[in-house]
């Protein structure tokens, strides 16, 4: 497990009046998924790319599991950090399996082991190895390609992954599915992940923590999604979080965690699907015109949800 520590990291491009990234400090705990969210051009991608030294910081320090990244040979460093970009960048002349085996090969794994690893990863991202390993990237849909992109980044089992708007170019339905699968994957793997996006809702959905960045990548707020929604640090964060933040917060709360009363079957209440959130419960009430719904063996009512929003400050 590796934590990431950014200490006063600055990137100053020559001939620019102001630094692109200005003295950013952040602690990212091992096994957490941290989302950098901010408008385009705010320096979030630059900040992320300094972690694997695709961009070299001008000053400041980046520590990876306690080691200064500047003390590690860049290619060696990158082979141990998974990297996923929006354009995916699969190598079109290599099969899916060869794409995944590339980094293990560079690290000197033998062919058998890398081949088994590739199959294992295809399985993990939900692509049948027998059907997909020998195909070429062009024979896959965009969503499938992005899954291979994630599998390829995971190939050498890196403790850290950097993801630059990985789902940004897919259609809404595919994106939603990829996000769900990705969350399931992360629940299993617990990698330390830096995830860059400009989509606040995606940040809320995926992040353990969110770093809301403003210009020059300065941190406006760094907290859990729930707390950012409940108590935005300033107007900038509030405007970025957008409207209906109460509803967005409800989406983060599983309905089974709501306080409730024992269910009486004879009431004939509408039943919430398993795994639904407090927001889904509210949605069901509005649709059915009731103020109570059944969640599992209990009932949840409208007043409870409102009360929850009053005192819920974080998960």
């Amino acid at each position: 497990m590796s934590d990431i520590k950014l200490v006063d990291v600055t990137k100053q491009y020559e001939g620019q009046p102001q630094p692109a990234v200005d003295a950013v400090s952040l602690d990212i705990a091992a096994g957490e998924l941290v989302v950098f969210v901010g408008p385009s051009g705010c320096g979030k991608t630059t900040t992320m790319k300094m972690i694997n030294r695709l961009i070299e910081p001008t000053s400041g320090q980046i520590l990876l599991g306690g080691a200064d990244v500047m003390s590690i040979e860049p290619n060696e460093l990158r082979r141990h950090i998974g990297y996923v970009i929006q354009q995916i960048g699969l190598f079109p002349h290599m099969t899916i399996s060869e794409n995944i085996q590339l980094v293990p090969g560079l690290l000197g794994w033998n062919r058998d082991r890398s081949r088994r690893r590739a199959d294992e990863l295809l399985d993990l991202v939900g692509l049948d190895p027998a059907a997909y390993r020998d195909r070429y990237p062009r024979q896959l849909s965009g969503g499938q390609q992005q899954r291979v992109g994630v599998a390829r980044a995971l190939a050498a089992d890196p403790p850290v992954m950097l993801m630059d708007e990985p789902f940004g170019a897919t259609d809404p339905i595919t994106r939603e599915r990829l996000q769900k699968e990705f969350l399931r994957l992360q629940a299993e793997l617990r990698k330390t992940i830096v995830f860059v996006t400009h989509d606040f809702d995606e940040a809320v959905k995926l992040g353990d923590r969110i770093a809301v960045l403003k210009e020059r990548s300065r941190v406006a707020q760094y907290d859990t999604p729930a707390r950012i929604l409940a108590a935005p640090a300033d107007d900038y964060v509030a405007s970025f979080a957008g409207s209906a933040t109460a509803i967005k917060r409800l989406a983060l709360i599983p309905a089974v965690r709501l306080p409730g009363e024992p269910l009486d079957e004879r009431d004939g209440l509408p039943v919430l699907e398993r795994g639904g959130s407090a927001r889904d419960a509210l949605d069901l009430m509005v649709r059915r015109g009731t103020s109570r719904v059944a969640v599992g063996d209990r009932t949840v009512d409208f007043a409870m949800i409102c009360a929850l929003l009053e005192d819920e400050h974080g998960r």
Partner: peptide, 18 residues
């Protein structure tokens, strides 16, 4: 060659010659 492909090669730790 698509710049995205070059970026992911670099990001994966391939040297310039590789």
């Amino acid at each position: 060659v698509d710049p995205a492909i070059l970026e992911s090669a670099r990001g994966m730790g391939l040297t310039g010659r590789q």
